[in-house]
Amino acid sequence: MKREHLILLAVFLLLALVPYAAELTGQTSWTRLVGQALIYGMAAASLNFILGYGGMVSFGHAAFFGIGGYVVGILYHHFDAGTSFLGLIPGTDQMLITLPAAVIVAGLAAALVGAMSLRTGGVQFIMITLAFAQMFFFLFISLKTYGGEDGIMVRRTNSLPGLDMKNKATLYWVVLCFAAAYYLFLRRLVQSSFGQIIAGIRQNERRMAAMGISTYRYKLAAFVLSGMGAGLAGALMVNFLRFASPDMMHWSRSGELMIMVILGGVGTLAGPFIGAGVLFTLETTLARYTEHWMLPVGILLLIVVLTTRGGLMALIRRLGGKR
């Protein structure tokens, strides 16, 4: 336990130093890259909670990521234009309002999708979550008011009282704090009795039902929690990139989130963050050298899926065990 705390603290401090390191070496793009990787890590970690711990293979997780992002985008759009959403809700650029709003709306969407999807299982579950994600995708594409296919520009990052959010480093640290808090939250969640029941359902749903647990409700609660996490990540991403587009919820994005989870290690806490970091860094670095970066990524992914079980976390653990 002690060792885990030390490692976590060391990683946090190391990540906190990234803007300084970027400044010193002149590689200012690092801050942006690591920040995005952290946010993708949060989204992947939220997916991992239902996928790795709960055994629910959702192929539509990017929908909640995108919805969270669009809440920030739409609120900013109305704030900028001085109008109200549906003539009722005024826009805002205060992060203390937009982030909770994004989390709640993503949670509501997840409740809707989950309530219907969880009646099925297996392949049908994978496909029905994909179907709902596609519906959201096309819904946002058809909303001309909010940019349609082009998406919404958020000209200025939401403001937090007392902080200069225009400063890239400040924004990065805010993101880092959210990611760290989310990591700790998931850690508590997995160890809680709720998390144990979710894991029990993955291992044997019938056994849990026989023990008198209403599995549908627990699965739904987990699905909603996971959607809320993705919504938070999406909201942060729109703040970070100052842009929300339907691309955020494209089905290949859902696939990418799954890749991050698998690459890092299914059902581990740090895995999704590691997977997101590796995949995102790999994509950006390769994209700098060749426009055909998808080919090496695809081959690497295929090798990882076919030859390793448990992803990079298993590799790290094996290396650690040898010592």
């Binding site: 293979v57 392949v123 696939g255 799954m258 890749i259 299914v266 080919l295 695809g298 992914l301 295929l302």
Partner: peptide, 13 residues
């Protein structure tokens, strides 16, 4: 199914 989805996704790429 998870591994299958990913491996075939890689094949698409």
């Amino acid at each position: 199914h998870l591994d299958q989805v990913l491996a075939t996704f890689a094949l698409i790429l």
